[in-house]
């Protein structure tokens, strides 16, 4: 479904992403795990066509995102790290705008589709409220709803649970799991347990390179923790006196 080959992104001399390759199968939930600044968001921004690719390529259903961005973008729903919300609009106005923006063509009416999406992320009760007046959890869900508009085959979710309370985190995870049958999902996080709870496969990124790639069955928390914590302290050492 998604093939990523030797993907690179450089900012001047600094390589934010350095030759990353992985594939995502249809109907799979892939977790991108890594500490902050590891290159997760950069990778996602490249897949969605928000930023350019320095080297390598991304194929979405066989379509190259650089050669045919319009076709590729039609297949992708993207929830960036900070949900792209127009705060002066109501939830309904906003989703209606996103529907028109994505030039959605479905065999149901616009109203039915938006109602459907609102139900999926449980925000029907706030549909007529202005986005600026919503709580963070609701804003995040409106952002999620935006990604679901047009029923894209692929969902790319950048840290969808950040800043939510434990209940909301559970809800969002349930939503992600429920979407698995209809969508292929790439989802990034820096929380280890989340990957185990939601994903089929995990790719761990650190400092722009892949540190480890495993299927869910192979995931062993202790082993991951070892890698993860090693990653976090790498690049500096502490003396006794510093503590």
């Amino acid at each position: 479904m998604i093939e990523i080959k030797n993907l690179c992104k450089s900012y001047g001399d600094k390589k934010a992403v350095n030759s990353i390759s992985f594939n995502v199968q249809k109907g799979e939930i892939l977790g991108l795990l890594g500490p902050n600044g590891a290159g997760k968001s950069t990778t996602m921004n490249m897949i969605t066509g928000y930023i350019s690719i320095s080297a390598g390529c991304v194929l979405v259903n066989g379509v190259d995102v650089l050669e045919n961005p319009m076709e590729a973008k039609k297949m992708i729903g993207y929830l960036p790290e900070q949900p792209p919300l127009y705060k002066e609009m109501t939830v309904w106005e906003y989703l209606s705008f996103v529907y028109d923006l994505k030039k959605v063509k479905l065999n149901m009416s616009k109203k039915e589709h938006i109602e459907d999406v609102l139900k999926t992320v449980s925000i029907t009760d706030v549909k007529n409220r202005k986005i600026k007046n919503l709580s963070k959890g609701y804003k995040q869900r409106v952002g999620f709803a935006q990604a679901l508009i047009g029923k894209p085959e692929i969902l790319i979710l950048d840290e969808p649970t950040v800043g939510l309370d434990p209940n909301q985190i559970m809800e969002i995870r349930d939503v992600i799991r429920s979407l698995k049958n209809e969508h292929t999902i790439i989802f990034s996080t820096h929380i280890l347990s989340e990957v185990c709870a939601v994903c089929d496969r995990v790719v761990i990124i650190n400092e722009g390179v892949i540190a480890c790639e495993k299927a869910k069955e192979e995931i062993q928390i202790e082993e991951l923790e070892k890698i993860f914590y090693t990653l976090n302290v790498k690049g500096g050492s502490l003396n006794e006196g510093d503590i």
Partner: peptide, 14 residues
């Protein structure tokens, strides 16, 4: 500033 350009530039519009 609001990062809403991410929505516009990742949508299938020129």
């Amino acid at each position: 500033a609001e990062k809403t350009d991410q929505l516009l530039l990742t949508a299938p519009v020129k």
